[in-house]
Design a protein around this nucleic acid. Sequence first.
RNA 1: GCCGAAGUGGCGGAAUAGGCAGACGCGCACGACUCAAAAUCGUGUUCCCUCGGGAGUGUGGGUUCGAUUCCCACCUUCGGCACCA
Length: 840
Amino acid sequence: MENWRLGIFLLSNLDLSGENSMSSYNPQQLEPKWQAKWDETGLYRQVIDVNKPKHYALTMLPYPSGDLHIGHWYAMTPSDARARFMRMKGYNVMFPMGFDAFGLPAENAAIKNNVHPQKWTFANIERMRGQLRSMGAMFDWEREAVSADPAYYKWTQWFFKKLIELGLAYREKAAVDFCPHCNTTLAREQVWGDDRHCERCGTPVVKKELEQWFFRTTDYADELLDFGGIEWPERVKVMQTNWIGRSEGANVVFRSEFGDEMPIFTTRPDTLWGATFMVMAPEHPLVEKLTSAAQAEVVQAYREQAQRLTDIDREAADRDKTGVFSGSYAINPVNGRRIPIWVADYVLMGYGFGAIMAVPAHDQRDFEFARKFNLEIIPVIAPATGELAADDMTAAYVGPGVMVNSETLNGTAVSEDKGRKNPSIAAAIDWLVAHDAGEEAVNYRLRDWLISRQRYWGAPIPVIYCPDHGAVPVPDEDLPVMLPEDVEFMPTGESPLKFHEAFIHTECPVCGRPSLRETDTMDTFMCSSWYQYRYLSPHYEAGPFDPAQGAYWLPVDQYTGGIEHATMHLIYTRFFTKAMRKMGLVDFPEPMLALYNQGMVLGEDGEKMSKSRGNVVAPDNLVAQYGADAVRTYLMFFAKWDQGGPWNYDGIKGPQRLVNDVWEMASAAYAPGQVDETATRALRRKTHQTIRKLTQDFETFSFNTAVAAIMELRNTITEAQRKRNVTQAAWDEAIDNLLLLLAPIAPHITEELWSMRGGAYSIHQQSWPTWDDEVAKEDELIIPVQVNGKLRERLIVPAGTSDEDIKTAALTAENVQRHLEGKTPRKVIVVQGKLINIVI
RNA sequence: GCCGAAGUGGCGGAAUAGGCAGACGCGCACGACUCAAAAUCGUGUUCCCUCGGGAGUGUGGGUUCGAUUCCCACCUUCGGCACCA
């Protein structure tokens, strides 16, 4: 199929006449020519210029998988066009590019093909640089940063140490998510979907007890919930807010009969008087102690069974409640009531304290459990319809009402508000504090970020374990901890670092005793959390970035990338910037002031592109066939950027015709024939309207309608060209502006034509055109006339005609008269300059 | 189950502080050029129609002189979360 298309193309491009061969449009020749010229002249070097406002435009950096695919083009081309637009608008624009070069695919390729990950990665980078160049983007390659470069990961390690110093990194043994296929632990964010699968490979994860390094993202939970001062899509803000999952309530200390403290978190302290039992997660550390001899066997069996269940089974919401009685009792601190302690897997060890008070009357889960095991139900909220009878209830009551059966708090109003806004919750918290039984508390769903990875191809965690001094950070002068190159890869994916004697065995930096080096590497999201800073000065050696560069360029003004990073990269990099502020490296709270999420290009079948589906669109072929400019234009035209949609091989013909037409009209000599004032004015009007439209569309990322507007201008110019009825000045104005407006979208052809027309190098250094409202103004208006809301007539009137005159003309129009059927209108609605509706 | 986004011609998509639905493009049809095809150019292209009109933006209601746009109730699709106390 591809070859066939290519064949047609080659034939159609053969210019057999010989006479126009110098000037026919040949993107394959012209695009590399300008790319080289831009390079030689340093057109895209981005240097500090204090006389200009700065604009830091950033697009998410790619993983060097080996081939640039159309998705990269879709992410980068419109970003590039936007950056070019900002540059023409007078901003000093920085638009860097780099590679997120650590990660599993390199290691998997190493295992499969026996190539070293480093070799594989850097060869891919080399290849992708060439492919990126073919796109014609304004990347400043002298700012390129590669995360797998020791000069880069030295600072990734340095940041790790800084986080330890600030108390934001710690090591802990915990039940963590482990991907058996990737053979490594994962952060909670990297476990997706109903079946809790690995974000990378799709394999369901398992739980493992391991000692791992964590970053205290939860320290910033509240700050991360504050999106003030940043323009981010609502969707991302909602996803992050849900992910962080803040709940307000109280911590209350229950005690077992034996005096063991059993703290719990509740969002409903106002229902404490209705707590009739407690439930502990099977993994709760007190389970063993609190299990009575009589219950020992059944509790033990239950715990074992719980352990065997996968998280998927356990977290299925519609599953029947299971559990066993521990044999012990706790004391409810608010009323001294003795309540049984149960063990059940609907309570999760990973949230709150792993134990709850159960209020079956007002919590559906507790209600189901109580009904199943015949536990007591005591209503403590009475709805407006009257008090509840426990025996008659078929579900927990979670609505508003007043507190009952709650001693001194009886009669307090219960609203549907959460936290202290609810009078009953406020009263209960005050009661707890006054009686020293608990305190106001906030709980988050967000977990600390687990960054240890049991893989080779990542930045080594710079820590040494000394028998005397414990975990000792590697001194700064010994950074970076280099990845050894002489390693052998296990087919199991197990990290070769664990078996590399020379790497493992070292000395304690404090006492010199033989010690062991940490063999885990860092999550690659650590590398990408601060790459926007490294771009400023990728060769800087005195720190992660040059503060002089930072003072000018930071923070990022416009970030663009896919939505899939909403709760991973985009939370991590926000956390990182907040930590960097604590380190004194930056003085702002947010890394990216504005964010835009592009959609996805799908295969022609409307499905996500994948090799197995065979619907992958290869940009290299398209560039060979149509040229980068046509591909860029099509990508920006076929859908609104945040929507995306299916690729269509026929659809690209529209943009292909556009660039061809632009070539024809801008390279042709124009000589006016019979000049027509009206036609001249019409062309000038269209030119100025198009400038206005494109300015607005670029500002709002509406690139598809921007390209459509350029096509309209093209259509108007085509007509003028055929009739030769506009002045030379109007023609030149139209062509020059056409090129300037198209320059950010199709940078090569516009550069060539600009130069052919004698414009100064480079078109990309010209100012964005401005429009004159007077010229853009329509001098005739088309006013639709409706009778009872149905269109009956269109009036063409000169601009500035009074409403009265339009109304008169409308009422006397022939077709309107016919539909009035001699009746007198009840009402005539005149929408100025827009429409008339006659109601009869 | 909860939260969010979206349903418009044959197709991709325009148009929402309520005001000509279908911009722009693809495709298609007819015509021109050609021995022929491709490319290119021109004309047309929401559907139905008795050529007067009628219907029409997922479905059903509502508000309004007027609704793709606002309100209510559904249906479908796609994301995110999901026993989170």
